[in-house]
Design a protein around this nucleic acid. Structure first.
Lengths: 344, 344
DNA sequence: ATGATTCATGCAACCGGTTGCAATGTCAAG
DNA sequence: CTTGACATTGCAACCGGTTGCATGAATCAT
């Protein structure tokens, strides 16, 4: 490991040759800059011959229209930004990937911002992107509503998993899936379950907690709630004692990561999943790739990205608005971490 | 699920108010545009009083310098682009996250491109970003060497996991880590191990296979090689019978995903990891987040991102560099899926 | 032949900043 | 009282495109 220098064949990175400009093409082709411009953007305004000629020369010189200059004069940046709390959280990549792919197909480039769950950083990112994008997708934003509204005045913006009236938003509604999970547990014979809570201020957490409580009430189950400091694997692992003390025979955890933490924590106390305790995750980011494979509430993360992007592009094209609130429901994916409770 | 419209409180997204410009600030402050510009970029050229005054007025009006306009006139875009084959592959997000974070701290915005393993798409992305970035990080590029060199002439570029002479590149060398894994198994007392192979033509697979064989030879272990059709969880799960037939008491698998498949497959045959068979993964994308937590060869994906970024920024600041080939070695992260073999 | 249309192209202003250079003012040294 | 050095500020050109309007030529109807 280290820095190696090869003297042989030092092609290396030299100072970058500056790109050919529209003027150079114009000069070489013997036409005005306008004509070159039009050859690229409005060829129907020019004679076929001129267009062909200009394009040929441009190609020879290696000219490519400068995105930035074009953006400045037209105001159409052909860029959008996606800001997420944590790229490394497996919940987000499928979403980013889907949105990015669709943006790409519409000729848009996408900026990616990682707020690290920090509102100040998120704010800074927004500000930095503001002058060079046509729109934002803000995922699970931690930013205050006032700040968000501030940015909306300047630039179109679509929220994912944040519910603010009047702003276009896509919400993954854990309700149905979580409710289904509770029913699933009840059917297996569980009487007492626990919910391992995520970040207090998170919209998803609120949703999930409410759904667990509601379904628990309807089915006459005992529902205990356990909180962690942060929704991490380690934090979840460490609350297992409290979890066991509740007497619950099944746990629904805020997300898949914490669910895995729970499984490890239970194991630390000699308990085996699902024999001794059943565990359900949320988001289904692991597919079936763990053993035992995790029963989880599917999150449709990719679809949310696609949907948000299409709302954004629709707005950019048609100016259409209205109070858009798109809700994606979820369902339970039943796998190997849930089973009948042990007989007492 | 579906589109809901609330008539009440339709704040909605209205046509965007255009941002205040430098001229407006200049007028309001009674100074020239140059002075406003300098108040933001070279305050030391102005009297303290003027600076204070301009900034105050700018703040009142809500003026923020336009990134695009600035980029056009200075040529400093303060943007870079990262292009990866597949965002959803858990190997990449930590890398992207690390690079993005450092870029952020240096005032750079980052574009993210997803080539979907498709050279043509990758080429298109490069072209599209070209006019608005100061540099590229190209990860596991699938592009032909000629095309890459073509772009390097136009714009600084750093490669990750692609070895082209003369271009700055960061390579993750699985050799040491895999070798360490073999030693680890040998120390535990294993005499016969297996390598579950990944894609035949993959550079990483070749490297890993070679390292296993070499270390096995040195330590006088029996090494069996098992191939799968594709390196998926399911495929790995399905070869467990063949695996068991080799008589190996430990397996090193191409990556973490297939390692998990192996664990599940062994379980299908009533074997428990690590009691009956030890398993080692590669890339360490799961952290400790599974149970039992996976012993794996760390890939240092985040570090590779950080390193590539710092090479790029160094170049942007200081200019010329030599032929940089930065190699990151790997090491074994020993966790819970490896143990002494059962006594025969 | 003539005025009206249409087509192809160029001119010049503009997008919103930055920056080299010149102009003006201030102050201290000679 | 000059003179020169230095600090402040404005002027105007420039970055690389786009686009409304004007121009001139060719086509067409009358």
């Amino acid at each position: 490991m280290g820095w190696l220098s090869h003297e042989e064949d030092c092609v290396e990175m030299t100072r970058t040759r500056s790109a050919p400009t529209i003027s150079q093409v114009a000069a070489a082709a013997g036409v005005s800059r306008s004509s070159v411009s039009r050859a690229f953007t409005n060829p129907h305004l020019l004679s076929e011959e001129t267009v062909k000629n200009v394009l040929r020369i441009a190609d020879e010189i290696g000219y490519v229209p400068n995105h930035t200059a074009r953006a400045l004069s037209t105001g159409r940046y052909a860029n959008i930004a996606i800001i997420v709390p944590d790229i490394a959280n497996p919940f987000f990549p499928p979403m980013i990937k889907a949105a990015q792919e669709d943006a790409d197909n519409s000729g848009f480039c996408v900026f990616l911002g990682n707020s690290n769950e920090d509102p100040a950083r998120e704010d800074q990112l927004l500000a930095r992107f503001l002058g060079q994008v046509e729109g934002f997708i803000l995922v699970s934003s931690r930013l205050g509503e006032q700040r968000i509204r501030h940015y909306v005045e300047r630039c179109p913006l679509v929220l994912i998993n944040r519910d603010i009236k009047g702003l276009p938003r896509v919400l993954i509604d854990s309700g149905p899936g979580v409710s289904e999970a509770v029913h699933h547990l009840a059917e297996l014979g569980h009487k007492s379950i626990a919910y391992l809570s995520g970040p207090k201020r998170s919209w998803s957490n609120t949703q999930r907690l409410a759904a667990v409580k509601k379904a628990g009430r309807e089915l006459d189950l005992k529902v205990s709630v356990i909180s962690t400091t942060t929704p991490s694997y380690q934090a979840a692992r460490e609350v297992s004692a409290r979890l066991i003390n509740t007497g619950a025979t099944a746990v629904i955890s805020f997300d898949d990561l914490t669910a895995q933490g729970v499984i490890a924590g239970l194991s630390d106390h000699g308990l085996v999943v699902p024999r001794d305790i059943s565990v359900v995750g949320c988001d289904d980011v692991l597919d079936a790739a763990t053993h035992p494979s995790l029963t989880s509430v599917s999150s449709r993360s990719a679809e949310s990205g696609r949907t948000a992007l299409s709302i954004l592009l629709d707005f950019l094209r048609k100016g259409n608005t209205g109070d858009i609130r798109f809700s994606l429901d979820t369902r339970l994916v039943s796998r190997e971490t849930t089973a009948r409770p042990r007989l007492p």
